[in-house]
């Protein structure tokens, strides 16, 4: 992607993000958010994070790859257990990175 295209995309994302934040305060002040939009908004974060994590771990150059010797999925599995047991973001990152270095050394 050229720098110009990147700047244009980032400016557009910034402008739309501001419009979302300003929407109910300024643009549609006095109106309520439709129920269907409210319902969709609640699931945006889990759907996005799950799709991004899955794509980072299992898609390489547009192809799905499950390899037993790939260190990243194993490290992610260890991190997921830490996240689930502790609920601590920093601990998850620290243990996940340590696990990645370990699996890279042994696999």
């Amino acid at each position: 992607m050229s720098t110009l295209a990147l700047v244009a995309m980032l400016a557009a994302v910034g402008a739309l993000t501001f419009l979302f934040r300003y929407a109910m305060i300024g643009l549609f002040a006095g109106r309520t958010l439709p129920r269907w939009l409210h319902s969709l908004c609640r699931h945006i974060a889990p759907a996005s994070f799950a799709a991004l994590a899955a794509s980072e771990l299992f898609i390489h150059a547009g192809e799905v790859a499950f390899a037993l010797a790939a260190p990243k999925p194993w490290a992610a599995l260890v991190a997921a257990v830490v996240a689930w047991r502790t609920g601590n973001v920093l601990a998850t990152i620290a243990v996940g990175m340590a696990a990645l270095y370990l699996f890279k050394a042994v696999l």
Binding site: A50, A53, G87, V89, T92, L100
Partner: peptide, 13 residues
């Protein structure tokens, strides 16, 4: 790799 790890942590929360 810390970025997908962050997503995994936020997901479980």
């Amino acid at each position: 790799f810390a970025v997908p790890l962050t997503f995994i942590a936020l997901l479980t929360l």
